[in-house]
C-alpha cells in the first residue's frame, strides 16, 4: 500500500462526512464504539474495484437526520432511511475519490451501493488487491474505509500503488 492513497481517502471521506451530513472529525473520540454497519460500492471502467465503508451504530441516525433535514420531525429516521443515507455517503466518497487517484479524463461506472449483511469488511478479495485503508474518529462515532482495486491501478492510476 502507498500511504498517499490513505491520505487522499482520509481527506475525501472526512470532507464528505462534513459537507453531506455535518459530521466532523474528532481526533480523541476513543469511546465512540466499534463500527458495526457496513456498505460496499463496486465500480468499473478505467480500472475496477471496490470501496467498503463501515460505521458505528451511533452515526446512522445522525447521518440520515442531517442528510434528509429531519431535525424538526418527532420520529427519527427509519431503518431504511438510515441504510439509504449510508449508501449515498459511500457513493459520494467513492465518486470523489476516483478522479483524485485516476485523473479527470478517466471514466468509471459506479454501481449501486449494497449493505453488507454480516457487517464485516473483508480483509482480502479474490479479484482485487488492497490499496488504502483508513479509520476516522468523528464527533458522532467511528468509521473505517477500505479500498480495493485491480492490478491495473499501478499503470492507470496517477500514483504508483
Amino acid at each position: 500500500m502507498n500511504s498517499k492513497y490513505n491520505e487522499i481517502l482520509q481527506r475525501v471521506a472526512e470532507s464528505t462526512f462534513e459537507s453531506l451530513a455535518f459530521i466532523l472529525p474528532m481526533p480523541d473520540n476513543e469511546g465512540a464504539g466499534w463500527p458495526t454497519v457496513a456498505v460496499s460500492v463496486g465500480f468499473s471502467g478505467h480500472f475496477s474495484g471496490l470501496l467498503f465503508l463501515k460505521v458505528s451504530d451511533g452515526i446512522l441516525p445522525e447521518l440520515a437526520t442531517n442528510m434528509l433535514g429531519l431535525e424538526d420531525e418527532q420520529s427519527g429516521p427509519s431503518h431504511e432511511q438510515q441504510n439509504d443515507a449510508l449508501k449515498e455517503l459511500a457513493n459520494v466518497i467513492c465518486g470523489n475519490f476516483l478522479p483524485e487517484i485516476a485523473g479527470t479524463e478517466a471514466e468509471f461506472a459506479v454501481n449501486a451501493p449494497e449493505i453488507i449483511d454480516d457487517g464485516e469488511i473483508p480483509e482480502a478479495t479474490d479479484r482485487y488487491r488492497p490499496v488504502a485503508r483508513v479509520q476516522l474518529n468523528l464527533d458522532s462515532g467511528n468509521a473505517e474505509l477500505s479500498f480495493f482495486a485491480e492490478e491495473a491501478i499501478n499503470t492507470k492510476g496517477i500514483i504508483a500503488a
Binding site: N91, V92, C94, G95, N96, L98, P99, E100, T104, E105, A106, E107, F108, V110
Partner: peptide
C-alpha cells in the same frame, strides 16, 4: 459525483447543466 471531464463535457454538449455532489 462524476469526476470525468470528458463525460461532463459530453453532457454539456447535449445542453445539460452539471451540479457536483
Amino acid at each position: 459525483t462524476e469526476g470525468s471531464q470528458t463525460r461532463i463535457e459530453r453532457l454539456q454538449q447535449r445542453g445539460a447543466k452539471f451540479i457536483h455532489k
